[in-house]
Design a protein around this nucleic acid. Structure first.
Lengths: 345, 345
DNA sequence: CTGAAAGCGCTTACAG
DNA sequence: CTGAAAGCGCTTACAG
């Protein structure tokens, strides 16, 4: 590729590089005539401004980064992630920002990545996915006042920008839904215990159970990862108990798929034997057999809003709320309700 | 954030900026002592090299871009994409490259994005997803000899680097599998006709049908998008025909989910009434009811290999094959086989 | 309305 | 082993 610089254009147009630069940035005090001529020459010679050089002087990169949580490998297996990306990209593209995807394989690696991207001034802001309890990273970014938006929540840094759901309430609603269907033995298939989302949903589950005066057996609570695999395992464990739950709240639809598959395989019927509600409402939940009841957490909105807040912050606009809660709603499907007429049974 | 530059370090260490630069890049002819001292001071002052400045002089960015096909919005709805990204990121991260995600909303926008990223020298190479027939973009990149890898194939530029499946053979295999199960009326639910993957799979389908002496009715071929929605629509159309197919080859698992759901809803049984094979083998395919037979196209490998080829190309290493074909294999599940004992029927 | 000059933060022959 | 100088491609006060 031939590299055409601003100097080449200047020479060809018989003006100074300063003038070319002003034409490129549509500076107001440039004569129409000069502007037209320079633009024509840029076109002819195939000029494209060097983004790096521009960044260096403007000290801005027009780029954001999404930092994938450590086990990025796993993350992508959860389909929830794609929807989140859609939301983030929709807004950032519109606002003229490029998006960088940074995967970190180890904590050490994560530190290096942050150093490179953030302190190396490669990006203007960063979106953090999946908040862990006591995440040192959040503290580090916060201390340096680097524009950051967290999807989730952080206990240590209450003033950090964040977008989240009310996960306590969401889990409460899911559990309550099973309770009013008459279930008394309700289990909870959770995610990794170091994720705030796991803690919050657990809390909502317990709260609903307590309020209803139902007891929570420790063996009805199983932790795992966000993989169908985990759902399968959790299910086989619970179904081996002398006193089995009759309803399950499951941390994620993919895990829910695993649970459902396992139950079917063991000959149980959903919802007759076991009722099921999970979270995230991924596109395939409604296509499961039976369709899975799920808490829609507004995944796309979550991403869109995160991008919006981050860009506002970068552009030093006033931000009215440091913490935005995206509303959730329970989508009731056949996996949790007997009374809905089964179409093919 | 306080900005510490190489000059600050130089001053504090009592050496020249050149020396600091050499320490940073582990230049061999720097005394152990100087190196140690400078490193200590960098640590103390919190020095991080400015990536933009480095790029400007080195003319390399250590960054790749993935250009999302135009309707990126849709793409993310297909779960296949996440797996592809996993593969791409796994390798690129390992090789020390950052990844940029570029979404283009319109053709115009796509051009601007390319100009900015490629000609603005913001990235060192680019991975193109989803090859369309006669894609002008491929030609443009190829003409400028910009390091590019295409996931898919391009008729116009046979020498461009590409990673692909043998989609003709894959569809042949899928169709043949139905044929040896005794099906004679087999339909094909395709994707958008401007994608090479749609064309190739269609060809394989026709080929298998022809070889077996089976006729292909035009109404048994339906085109749509890669969404469950499309599967649903295709299915209702075909099931309204006087002569319905008894087997279906479906371009994508997500579409397959839609087909399956629709069939179940209409009271058909799979595979007894209709047998089904689709492509991509996404994680949830095996959890469908019944589990969906699918051609595993090695999605992760596809991404991994693309990244590998691109980085080799950038680093000017010898590339033995311009075009790499990732092998596929048919995963037979209950959706296409009567004889497998149904666990719960 | 336009140009000359300085500078963004780094690297790298060229000398020594 | 180390430094001074030039330069990567751009922008932006400062003059005029």
């Amino acid at each position: 590729m031939a590299v055409v610089t601003i100097k080449d254009i200047a020479k060809a147009a018989g003006v100074s590089p300063s003038t070319v630069s002003r034409v490129v940035s549509n500076h107001p005090r440039i004569s129409k005539e000069t502007s037209r001529k320079v633009k024509r020459i840029m076109e002819e010679m195939g000029y494209h401004p060097n983004v790096m050089a521009k960044s260096l002087v403007s000290k801005t990169t027009q780029t954001l980064a999404i930092l994938l949580p450590r086990p990025a490998e796993e993350l992508f297996k959860d389909f929830f992630f794609g929807e989140l990306m859609r939301g983030i990209l929709a807004h950032s593209t519109r606002a003229g920002y490029d998006m960088m995807l940074a995967a970190a394989t180890s904590p050490q690696d994560e530190d290096d990545t942050i150093s490179r991207l953030v302190f190396g001034r490669r990006v203007d802001g960063i979106i953090l996915l999946s908040s862990r309890v006591d995440d040192p990273l959040i503290e580090r970014l916060d201390k340096h006042k680097f524009p950051t938006v967290l999807i989730g929540r952080s206990e240590g840094q209450p003033h950090i920008l964040s977008v989240d759901n009310d996960n306590v309430k969401a889990a409460y609603d899911a559990t309550h839904h099973l309770i009013i269907q008459g279930h008394e033995r309700i289990g909870f298939v959770s995610g990794l215990p170091n994720l705030t989302v796991s803690l919050d949903r657990m809390e909502g589950y317990r709260k609903a159970m307590n309020e209803a005066g139902l007891s929570v057996r420790p063996e009805w609570i199983v932790e795992g990862e966000f993989l169908q695999h985990s759902g399968y395992r959790a299910m086989s464990f619970m179904m081996s108990l002398p006193e089995k739950p009759s309803g399950l709240v499951v941390i994620d639809d993919v895990v829910g798929f695993g649970v459902l598959h396992g139950l079917t395989e063991l000959g149980y019927t959903v919802p007759e034997d076991i009722s099921l509600v999970s979270f995230n409402n991924i596109a395939l939940s409604e296509l499961a057999t039976p369709p899975i009841s799920s808490i829609d957490i507004g995944t796309y909105q979550l991403g869109y809003t995160a991008s919006q807040m981050l860009i506002r912050r970068i552009q030093a606009e006033t931000i009215h709320q440091n913490r935005v809660i995206i509303p959730h709603r329970l989508i009731v499907r056949d996996s949790s309700v007997h009374s809905i007429s089964k179409r093919n049974s």
